[in-house]
């Protein structure tokens, strides 16, 4: 009897959970379904499935948004920023942990404290600094900004992670005549892999989806990332929901596909990044 009751309860819970999941997914249903409808049909009935599935919205949006170019821009910026952040922050963290001079302790302290500074407190002068260095005309300037903003948290994460790596191996290698750069890239870097994965995940979620910083740094349409292009597109086609929705589906698709294919790694990475952070 008790067992049956328990079973009933479990089934009830499963149903509750399933309903919650459906509610959570329902916005996607509306967006996807309507992106295949004509403008008129969206206005008449946004809730039901399309009478006839049409692809015109996607064909038009693909061209109008210059999707392949915009996608490539986002990709270049995300990859370059990630590479730079990983190299400079892991090297700095390594040195700051292994050589604990007063200076290095102070530098580490500044990195940690600076994590509280909100972006809005620096964005106004930052625009000025970047334009006086002539770095506001290309995506290199934006990537450099990501290096600067992105470095402190990974330094902190790597610093914590490296404490568990025994120093004895490195000392032996130095005795054998390895340079410290050699020791770092050949021996330490490979051991950092789990933390590097976490850093990549957190950075990618941030940089790929970022809007404010690129909007302040990228002025030519040729360089626009997905959020920037979508912002312009949306302003131009306000209430043109047929095009806007197709654009939205295209824009969110890369990240969702990436997430669904690597979900376990991504969720683990996020947990270890946040819990240590």
């Amino acid at each position: 009897m008790i067992r049956i009751l328990k079973n009933h309860r479990r089934i009830a819970l499963e149903i509750v959970a399933l309903l919650l999941a459906l509610i959570c997914l329902s916005p996607f249903y509306f967006v996807i379904v309507n992106s295949f409808k004509s403008y008129k049909e969206i206005l008449i009935d946004p809730a039901s499935l399309p009478v006839k599935w049409i692809l015109d919205n996607y064909i038009n949006t693909w061209k109008e948004l210059r999707f392949p170019a915009v996608f490539a821009n986002s990709l270049i910026i995300t990859i370059c920023s990630n590479l730079g952040i990983i190299i400079i922050s892991s090297m700095a963290a390594y040195r700051l942990l292994r050589v604990k001079t007063k200076l290095n302790k102070a530098i580490f302290g500044i990195f940690v404290m600076a994590m509280v500074i909100p972006f809005q407190s620096i964005m106004i002068p930052l625009v000025r600094v970047m334009s006086s260095l002539n770095l506001n005309t290309s995506n290199i300037g934006l990537i450099i900004c990501y290096f600067g903003f992105g470095v402190s948290f990974p330094v902190f994460l790597y610093h914590g992670f490296m404490k568990s790596i025994p120093i004895s191996i490195e000392e032996a290698a130095i005795v054998d005549g390895c340079t410290s750069l050699g020791v770092f890239f050949k021996m330490v870097m490979p051991l950092l892999k789990p933390m590097t994965a976490t850093v990549i995940i957190l950075n990618t979620l941030w940089i790929w989806n970022d809007f404010l910083l690129p909007s302040l740094m990228l002025h030519s349409r040729e360089l626009y990332t997905i959020p920037l292009a979508m912002n312009g597109f949306f302003a131009k086609y306000t209430k043109q929901w047929d095009l806007a929705l197709a654009g939205l589906v295209l824009s969110i698709a890369p990240m969702i596909i990436l997430f669904l294919s690597l979900q376990k790694n991504i969720i683990n990475g996020i947990v270890s990044g946040s819990v240590k952070g």
Partner: peptide
């Protein structure tokens, strides 16, 4: 030399993008 190679880049970018603008602000 090692200090500059290992920590230099991080400090440089961080100062340029975060610290200097923060104080200018």
């Amino acid at each position: 030399l090692e200090e500059i190679i290992f920590i230099g880049p991080a400090v440089l970018f961080f100062s340029l993008i975060v610290l200097i603008p923060f104080f200018i602000g």
